[in-house]
Every structure is written in structure tokens, then in C-alpha cells.
Write a protein that binds this DNA or RNA. Structure first.
Length: 431
RNA sequence: GGAGGCUUCGCCUAGUCCGGUCUAUGGCGCCGCACUGCUAAUGCGGUUUGGGUUAACCGCCCAUCCCGGGUUCGAAUCCCGGAGCCUCCGCCA
């Protein structure tokens, strides 16, 4: 299959016609994100320059094409003069094309610099300005001295961070014994739930090409958290969202086939640059973890409804794990470049007396689809699809499960729904 | 690591040797119309994508035969570089 590589094709991250019609909306979005709204004007200007350059190029090419055609049908006497003229025009074409490609490069960079347009209704502000939509379940009341997940994990011989550090360094760990069983069971339960809801299960590559990473929106401000294998120019994915978005790259999908829903199971890798000193204990923040992730391709008009569905499926998982949690509407300034809106579910972590992120669902609208060139055919031409993603389960969930379901003797009750997946109803300390 | 083959408009495919008439062939699929009591079958027509022009349409212009560069008045076609896929050999699981 022939593919249009991001670097070579004209990227249209934002619908230019829409932008020309209503630049203020995009400016307002940039402002809400705390990003530079002058980037919008730079984009408009780059668009103008490129259009002018292309129009000039088209005119010269038309002339040059006509001249070449004349050469073919000319009599031997006329030929030399016509060839000389055509040669001259050919030179002009080359010059015009140099200007065109320069203008296109500028436009491409201008495009890539602008983040997705914030969905109406997203809370204004930064990281601390999220809005709590709902709190679900009662926080556990313990009548004994509680342990944190690492102590519990060590008692159960489920988590071994010492040997993880010995072998791979800080923020690496081994899951052993019931720890390994618990994680596999949890992920499998998530996978089964999604499959039951009609998702296609997928175990994707965890190394992807630059254009997939770029197209998914991870090489912007998030780039420092991405592992790069320079030798092969491949990136280790931080989430299966990347390979699942790339799955339909450069394809025109049948509109009737939507929604296309995939549930990915993969290891995920994050450098965690800039988070030194945060969450250094245990497995809350690690370089490698496993995740089951939902990913949907839907018609753009369906995106908001799908977003709610993804959120509902996440909540179903949390309910089955019997975890107390809250749902937050993430503020505009705290959204990743690709997200127009994001809802997180945060479970209660007793040892920290805090809610911590367990799931995150983003509506990326057509942002990723434009970069990855994923379209549907409509009556009049093609149109980018909308993509959305949402977490079903991760290694971090073990933290919440161990801590919330611990008992005074250091054993941990397995939530009922998980019992068949883990093969036991209690995790017992190993002496 | 070494050698060879391949990549064409949704899918398959002709064309590439020997440059212009390729404004890209045919089939499948899809869309429309006709015919039939409905469906099927059949017949006719349409169907790459992006940009520009237009209020919109029709039409027209430009680009597009994996990507980039080169040769040439002119490149799907010739040359160079790159990517991807496949096969075989070697090496290692």
C-alpha cells in the first residue's frame, strides 16, 4: 500500500476554510490553553503565502506545459525556437516550485504548532482548575493501621521495586506471584468488557514510526516523555493510542463501517522527564506499565456522544473493582495538544489521602485524523474522522486495589468481579 | 549482514524494455438510470485524491502512478538516493 508520509504531504491540522471563516474561535482556544494565539495569525499568513505561491506556480506550469506540447507538433524548422522558449519556461517553473515548497514548509510548521481546538464547555484554567463532576462510592474507613501499596506488595511478594531498580533502574519493578496474576486478571477483565461491548481486541506494536508519533500529537510538548531509539528512528509508545490511531493511517474508511472500536493491550513506556522526586515510592509513576486502552474512530458528529460512552465504560470497570472514585472535567490549560476535551476518573488512594488518575478519556475530534490522513467518504468529497481514546485498566490500578481492599493482617480482598480472573478471592501475605 | 523481485486512481490489474497520443487500461466494488411484478440478472452511464477558480453547480486550470532529487522542451516510463513489502542465503533464536 502506498502511504503519504507526514513529512512529504501537506498537513492540514486545522480546517483552513473553517479557520478563515472564524479565526477568533481558534484564537480563543489557544488563549484557553495558555498557548500563543499569535500562532493562529502566523498560520493564516502562511496559508495566504502558500496560496499565492501555488497560484503563481500553477500559471507558470500551464504555460510551460503548453509550450512543450507545441514542440511535439512543430515542424523541424520551428523546433529550435520553440525548444528554446520551452527551456526558458521550464527554468521559471523550477524557480516557482522552489518558492512553493518553501511556502509549504512554513505552512506545515505553522499547522503543527497549533493545538486542537478546545471543546465548548471545557473548564477554563490550568492543572488545578478541573471541575469535579461526580464522586462515586464511599472511601474505606479502616479501624487499623493501614499500609501503602508498596508495603502490601512486599508482604504479598507481589511487587519488587528493589530488584526492578537493580536490573533496570529507578521506576522499574517486577510484578511477581499474585502481583503478576492480579495484573493479568485485571487487564483481561478490561479486555473482556470491551470485547463484550463490541470492541475489536488488538495487541499492537509498541515501537512506531515518527509520523505515527507526530500524527498522534506526542512529539509536541510531550516529546520529552517519549523514548526514542535513534539507531532505528522508532519511538516506544507511551500508550497503545499511538499504534491504534496509526492503524488506519492513510486510509479512506467506509462511513458505514463507523464506529470502528479497538481495545488495545500493550506495555507502555514513559521517560517521566521532569517528574523527578514525584511519586518515587512504589508503582504509581513508572517507566513501564501495562494498559488496556479503548480507541474509537467515529463520525465527527458522533464524537461527543462517543466520549460519554467511553467514560461510562471506564466507570463500569472502576465499579467492578469496587473502587471509590471521582470524575473530573480537565481544564483547558491542562489538556494535551490533541485533546479537545478530557475526563479523568481518579480513584481514592488511602495512603496518600488523595484521588489519583486511573483513567483518562480524550475527544481528539479530527486532530489526529488530519495529521494521520484518516478520512471517510461523504457525498461531497472526503472528511477526516474523529478519534477518541479511553483507559480501561493499567498497572496503576493495582495501587488502588491493594490499598482500598487491604485488611488488618496484610491480606487483600479480591473484588468479586475479579475473582474468576485472578483465581482466588484473597491475596495472602507470603511468609 | 548479502542477493534478487515488487510498489499504478477503494481492491486487483494493463502500461515501464523503446519518454510525448497515459487527459492511465480492464475487472471487482460502489453510485445513478433503464428494463423486469419486487429482488436478482442484464444494459447504459458515472466513480483517484488534493489545491485553485465559483454564492453554489457545470466547466476549466495545477498537481498526483511509494517518497525525494536528477536528466529532458517533455518522465508512470530513463538515472541517482531513500522507504515499504516479498523471496532466498547467512547469522542468531
Amino acid at each position: 500500500m502506498g502511504t503519504n508520509r507526514l513529512a512529504g504531504s501537506l498537513v492540514r491540522v486545522i480546517d483552513l476554510q473553517q479557520l478563515r471563516a472564524d479565526p477568533d474561535r481558534v484564537r480563543a482556544s489557544q488563549r484557553a490553553r495558555g498557548e500563543d494565539e499569535a500562532l493562529v495569525d502566523a498560520l493564516l499568513e502562511a496559508d495566504e503565502s502558500r496560496r499565492a505561491a501555488v497560484a503563481a506556480g500553477d500559471a507558470v506550469r500551464a504555460e510551460s506545459n503548453a509550450a512543450s506540447k507545441e514542440v511535439r507538433s512543430a515542424s523541424p524548422d520551428d523546433r529550435p525556437a520553440l525548444i528554446a522558449r520551452a527551456k526558458e519556461l521550464s527554468g521559471s517553473v523550477k524557480q516557482a516550485e522552489t518558492e512553493e515548497s518553501a511556502a509549504e514548509a512554513v505552512l506545515r510548521d505553522a499547522h503543527l504548532a497549533v493545538s486542537n481546538i478546545i471543546e465548548e464547555g471545557a473548564p477554563p484554567g490550568g492543572a488545578d482548575d478541573y471541575v469535579v463532576l461526580e464522586e462515586v462510592g464511599a472511601k474505606p474507613a479502616f479501624d487499623f493501621e493501614t499500609k501503602d501499596h508498596l508495603e502490601l506488595g512486599q508482604l504479598l511478594k507481589a511487587i519488587d521495586t528493589d530488584r526492578g531498580a537493580k536490573v533496570a533502574g529507578a521506576r522499574f519493578y517486577y510484578l511477581t506471584g499474585v502481583g503478576a496474576l492480579l495484573q493479568l486478571g485485571l487487564l483481561r477483565m478490561g479486555l473482556d468488557q470491551a470485547v463484550g461491548a463490541g470492541f475489536t481486541p488488538a495487541i499492537p506494536p509498541v515501537l512506531v514510526r515518527p509520523e505515527v508519533m507526530e500524527g498522534t500529537g506526542f512529539l509536541g510538548q510531550a516529546a520529552e516523555n517519549v523514548y526514542h531509539l535513534a539507531e532505528d528512528d522508532l519511538y516506544l509508545v507511551g500508550t497503545s493510542e499511538a499504534p491504534l490511531a496509526g492503524y488506519h493511517m492513510d486510509e479512506i474508511l467506509d462511513a458505514n463501517s463507523l464506529p470502528l472500536r479497538y481495545v488495545g493491550w500493550s506495555s507502555c513506556f514513559r521517560r517521566e522527564a521532569g517528574s523527578y522526586g514525584q511519586d518515587v515510592r512504589g508503582i504509581v509513576r513508572v517507566h513501564q506499565f501495562d494498559k488496556v486502552e479503548m480507541f474509537s474512530y467515529v463520525h465527527p458528529d458522533e464524537a461527543q456522544a462517543e466520549h460519554q460512552r467511553l467514560l461510562a465504560w471506564e466507570r463500569e470497570m472502576l465499579d467492578k473493582c469496587e473502587l471509590p472514585y471521582r470524575v473530573i472535567d480537565v481544564a483547558a490549560g491542562d489538556l494535551g495538544a490533541s485533546a479537545a476535551r478530557k475526563f479523568d476518573c481518579e480513584a481514592w488512594v488511602p495512603s496518600q489521602s488523595k484521588y489519583r488518575e486511573m483513567t483518562s478519556t480524550s475527544n481528539c475530534t479530527d486532530f489526529q485524523a488530519r495529521r494521520l490522513n484518516i478520512r471517510i467518504r461523504e457525498e461531497r468529497g472526503t472528511r477526516p474522522v474523529a478519534t477518541l481514546n479511553g483507559t480501561l485498566a493499567t498497572t496503576r490500578w493495582l495501587v488502588a486495589i491493594l490499598e482500598n481492599h487491604q485488611r488488618s493482617d496484610g491480606s487483600v480482598r479480591v473484588p468479586e468481579a475479579l475473582v474468576p480472573y485472578v483465581g482466588r478471592d484473597v491475596l495472602e501475605p507470603v511468609t
